[in-house]
Simulated scan of single mutants.
Amino acid sequence: MMRQLVVITGMSGSGKSIALRALEDAGYYCVDNLPPELLEPLIGLDDPRKPGRTAVAMDVRSGASLPQVPLMLQTLRDRGVEVRQIFLDASDDTLLRRFSETRRRHPLSSSGDVSQQQALTEAIAAERDLLADMRERSHVIDTSMLRAAQLQSFVKSLIAAPSSQLTLVFESFAFKRGIALDADFVFDVRMLPNPHYEPELRALTGRDAGVIEFLRREPEVGRMFHEIAAFLRGWLPELADNQRSYVTVAIGCTGGQHRSVYLVEQLAAAFSRDWHTLTRHRELPPA
């Protein structure tokens, strides 16, 4: 059986411990804050007693060893290990709030003549620079607006996706709560007719029959669907040829409940005939 490795990286305070617990629940042998030098011995390529499915969390606490990680992971891939990389991110405001609420010290915070808030802001900026290469090589999940259960659900769905083909992740979100940071493509559908203004539809979502019927009757909604689908079909072969594992397509409306949810569901269904697809609804509880 091929050995599997999931590497969780990301910003401090973005939820790496929660993601690691989700992988532990899924049957992975998990190690937090693993020094990169111990990665290959942990996998134990030549030791049949080593676990077949392993997940590790790495962050800036690895210090000077962090730049070596991409080369180490490529070496493992060359030796037959199935490697997946997930990067957890969040907005600066979210990270500042989380550190303030927990009163934790950022691993890059320095003492000096600056205020605690300024020191934390500078530490977050420095961390982004240090992790930029890891982020570029990973599938990104924006945890700014996610509950713990949502993050765990997203992680489990990602590792269940086949690694041998490109996976399309369709994500709905609300512009009023901030743009999705993890998107490769963002489409704004706020100009479409809004079921929110129909009293009998207001409490429903884009997955409910009443809203689906309302939006299917609107020509603008059909036009938006076909134009987004045509754009994606035109570029997906090139993205797949570029060795991408995941592409995240975010659809945003005002509240993230009706129009964006509907289009995410319709697009995922349409593309599932030729591609592996996943759906996320940032503003809705897990189904």
Rank of each mutant, 00 (worst) to 15 (best):
E122G: 02
Q165M: 14
N194A: 08
S109P: 00
A174K: 01
D129W: 15
F154V: 11
L201I: 06
S144C: 01
A174V: 00
S144W: 00
H196N: 10
Q118C: 09
F187I: 06
L108C: 00
T205G: 05
A149V: 02
K156S: 08
D188E: 12
I141Y: 09
E136A: 15
S109A: 13
S109L: 05
L166G: 05
F185W: 10
Y197D: 09
L151H: 07
A132C: 02
L166V: 00
V189C: 06
A161W: 12
Q116F: 13
E101Q: 03
V155W: 01
D113Q: 10
Y197P: 00
M145G: 10
M145S: 13
V169Q: 06
E171R: 01
E136P: 11
H196A: 10
N194M: 08
D142E: 14
E198T: 07
A203V: 14
T143D: 14
D184I: 08
V186P: 01
Q152F: 04
S111Y: 15
M145D: 15
V169S: 03
V140T: 03
E122A: 05
I124W: 07
S144H: 04
P107K: 02
A203H: 15
V186C: 11
R105D: 14
M145H: 11
A161D: 15
S111W: 15
I179N: 13
S163K: 01
I179G: 14
L146W: 05
E200Q: 13
R105A: 14
M134Q: 06
R105T: 08
E198S: 12
M134R: 03
T102M: 03
Y197C: 01
R105E: 15
I124M: 02
S110C: 11
H139P: 11
P193D: 15
K176Y: 09
K176H: 11
N194R: 06
M134E: 13
S157D: 15
R104S: 01
G112N: 02
R104Q: 05
L181V: 04
M191H: 14
